[in-house]
Design a protein around this nucleic acid. Sequence first.
RNA 1: GCGCCCCUAGCUCAAUUGGAUAGAGCAACAGACUACGAAUCUGUAGGUUGGCGGUUCGAUUCCGUCGGGGCGCACCA
Length: 651
Amino acid sequence: MILALQARLADALRAAARDAFGVDPGAVGFQYPPDPAMGDLASSAAMSLAKAQRRNPREIAAALAERMAKAPGVSRAEVAGAGFVNLFLDRGAALGTLAAGLRDPQPAAAVPGHAIVEHTSINPNKAAHVGHVRNAILGDTFVRILRARGHDVGVQNYIDDTGVQVADVVVGFLHLEKKALAEVAAIPGRFDYYCWDLYARVGDFYAAAPENKAKQAEVLHAIEAGSNDVAALAEHVAARIVACHLETMARLGIRYELLAHESDILRLHFWNRAFALLKDAGAIRLVTEGKQIGCWVLGMGKGDDAAAVDEDKILVRSNGTVTYTGKDIAYQLWKLGRLDRDFRYRLYREEPDGHKVWQTTSGDSDPGAPRFGHARDVYNVIDVGQSYPQRVVKAGVAALGFEREAAGTHHLAYEKVVLSQATAKALGYEVADEGGAVKVSGRKGLGVKADDLIDALERKALAEIEARDPERPAEQKQRTAREIAVGALRYFMLRYGRTRVLTFDLEEALAFTGETGPYVQNAIVRARNIFAKLEAEGHRVEALLERARGLDLGAMLDGDEGAEIWALALLMARSEEVAEAAVASEEPSLVARHAFAVAQAFHGYYQKPKYSLLRAESEDRRALRVLVVDAFVRQMTALAGLLGIPVPERM
RNA sequence: GCGCCCCUAGCUCAAUUGGAUAGAGCAACAGACUACGAAUCUGUAGGUUGGCGGUUCGAUUCCGUCGGGGCGCACCA
């Protein structure tokens, strides 16, 4: 709604500038005045024009305002401050349009090209922890926002099934537990939790004696060679852990289209192909002297944005093996459809609603598999510590001459999750009292497991429901508790900027007051309740909505209530603009905070007894309020959907 | 040493990418329920935006510099 309106007004503004000064100001944007009484939209175009025109900005603004007052959808225009042109919209018409748009939503125009978002990508050797949860929620939310804005998106989860982390757990099974595949396969219960503890013990095992550490290399080589008992054990571990991870993420409403395996990248020789491409293009060179002698390197530091890095990045070691970053370039080229080599695919599983999860394979391909890769934009959700390697990957793509593909290579970097002091203490860390947040060492087996956290949230929510409304059926209480837990966790992980270190505090995450997911959920639940109540008292909601369509909304929006309704409506109308900004800036927190702002505006309005729907002073008033509440429920539900926050029937 | 991120209210974070009087939540204090569900709302208090310079109509935002914190800069994955 607001975007289309803004586009029209921007055209009108440019036309006004041409008419008055014979100059086209180019792209013009709109801001929002600090106080709604000052106007609904503001433009600072006059201030920009002032410089070129060598005239008083307020004079220019006056000329623009005079013309803008006649633009369609505008009721009046004023000059304010240093030279802002403030526009007052035709509120009745705008509210009607907003309500109609929410009632009959038009999908966003399809954006050409395919996008891949890769997220989660947890080493398949132990249970997921809070840091992984941040990754997955960030990625999943970004996917939801992209799709809402008309992007065609595929979600990939990268499985590093041949790395040292898996090897470490295999070392644990072989040398600490003396278990072979059959015995490992017989381990009952939570396998990811079992490996979590085992992995910590392997750390101690390595530290105890240097020869122990040598086992790691042995196992790693066996896994890479394949076709042996050790490799079979590694495969079992990885597959079972992946299943655990998917289950954990499913609790949060997160799922994937493709599980891409590192082992298949190796077996299908993606790197060989990429190596040939890089050599042919002259993108990499063989070092013939100095300390990198014998290595193939990618030149870094001469690109315009590549901030000075002294040394070139080694992709192939002097012994001829490829580095991790080299493989990553090959994989990225595949994602972009620029590696003329493909995975093979088979179905991993089909979910009850028909959603299909595929996985890569180096065996036979299922002819029914959809096309993967070939993306125009690739968003890799990886922690900020990987910024340098990610820049190398991008540079590698660019060095092949793939300018557009390099531009489509995005790193959705996010900072790590640390523990607050109180939470660290609660988990058994030794904490120095004066310090701030506490880093979690993955090796030590401490830290917060994702499932433990979700469990704790569910217990807390359930206790809260019991306290408020013990009469409800147990099953319903359980379901609501789950929904509230997910809403609380997702919102908590989304409310901060990506590049903020997130200090995790159990108490805070478990709190249901303030800027939280449950607050947002509760707003919708509250609003929906009134419709049932209206019906129960003999009113007909549909009829009231119909009546609202015939009202003179402009006249009814005068007065205090009108001002509140208008502020709420304008805020809701900005939702698509906010989602678009979230895509452009790759920052989902914008949507989260906007959702909270809308919920807050609604609570503030709805709370007031004088705006009662049940005891409305006239049928017209009642109809107006029904219209507002209906619009809110629809908009807020859509926003919750973007954030992956479930909407409970009751709180 | 080089590069990146961060420093805003007691705490955790915002600030429409250079705009108007720097805003929210938590914590504190004072209030509002025989209820359109109080997981809510209203109000009070809380600021030299780390320091100092600069750029301009305008700087939390851009530049320089100093200070403090975090992370990268592997022939590890």
